[in-house]
């Protein structure tokens, strides 16, 4: 039955997930990481001074490197550099096609990508070090109404399950002689949808039916109050990191507006 499969997957994935407890970012509360991500994403929009952005980039890169996932960091940065190069090339071509769009400098193109790199650093830390349970606790702490909390919790819980499903479908397709690679996807887009997504949608619909029945049988949604099995408070390290984030953002704004030299 599907429900038992979900349980098996949880225990299986818990044992397979690399242990990140040694790194301080892994021990931070998911709400603290969300707040860091949110404050940084808010701050990078008004910031335009290259030195202010450079400080944020350096600190956020150190934050990302502290979790010691160097391979993922390298791949993410190579992808970002590739996208940056592609955007510069495309804009160069557009400026040749439309001469009145000329007059753009390299700095004009680089600044948006520095912003993206800063966001990438904080988001990668959150994505790599946060577990599904932590995300659910974060969601619960937002005190959303039942009709928003339930589907959002299901959504967070099911993303890893579907990733597992996709890899299983890909394996089964390999045994039939289909290898889903970028060239194959570009040459046969509709066939890829048929091969990969039709079984996935049918699995999703079955899972939704079973989980919905299980939720109704357990009485989910009959009462307004959701009781908490375990309440997690923000720790000392979370407050220290949040204060540090605020201080760094204040320095960046100080540099931009000339309060800090």
């Amino acid at each position: 039955m599907r429900a038992s499969y979900v349980t098996n997957y949880t225990t299986e994935s818990a044992t397979k997930t690399p242990v990140l407890k040694k790194e301080f970012a892994a021990n931070l509360d998911v709400r603290a990481k969300m707040l860091i991500s949110f404050s940084v994403s808010l701050a990078v929009i008004p910031l335009y001074h290259i030195e202010a952005l450079a400080i944020l980039l350096t600190v956020s890169l150190a934050y990302l490197l502290s979790i010691r996932r160097f391979w993922i960091t390298l791949v993410a940065y190579i992808t970002l550099a590739f996208l940056c190069g592609l955007a510069i090339l495309s804009s160069f071509m557009v400026s040749h096609l439309f001469p009145n769009m000329k007059g753009l400098t390299l700095a004009t193109f680089i600044l948006p990508f520095i912003r993206i790199a800063i966001l990438l650093n904080v988001i990668l830390v959150m994505a790599i070090t946060s577990r599904v349970q932590g995300m659910l606790q974060g969601l619960k702490s937002l005190r959303l109404p039942y009709f928003i909390y339930l589907p959002a919790a299901v959504m967070i819980r099911f993303i890893p399950v579907f990733i597992k499903d996709v890899s299983q479908i890909k394996d089964s397709l390999k045994t039939k002689g289909y290898d889903i690679r970028p060239v194959f996807v570009c040459l046969h887009p509709f066939f890829t949808v048929r091969l990969l997504f039709v079984p996935l949608v049918i699995r999703a619909l079955r899972s939704a039916d079973e989980l919905g029945i299980a939720a109704e049988l357990k009485g989910v949604g009959l009462r307004d109050n959701i009781s908490h099995y375990r309440k997690k408070q923000l720790g000392k390290s979370d407050y220290v990191v949040l204060l540090l984030t605020l201080a760094i953002l204040a320095v960046a704004f100080g540099i931009q507006y000339g309060f800090v030299s």
Binding site: P151, A152, A208, G212
Partner: peptide, 12 residues
């Protein structure tokens, strides 16, 4: 709950 679960599963 059944409808909410379907919405959550499809969002994922």
């Amino acid at each position: 709950p059944r409808e909410l679960v379907v919405i959550g599963v499809f969002s994922a």
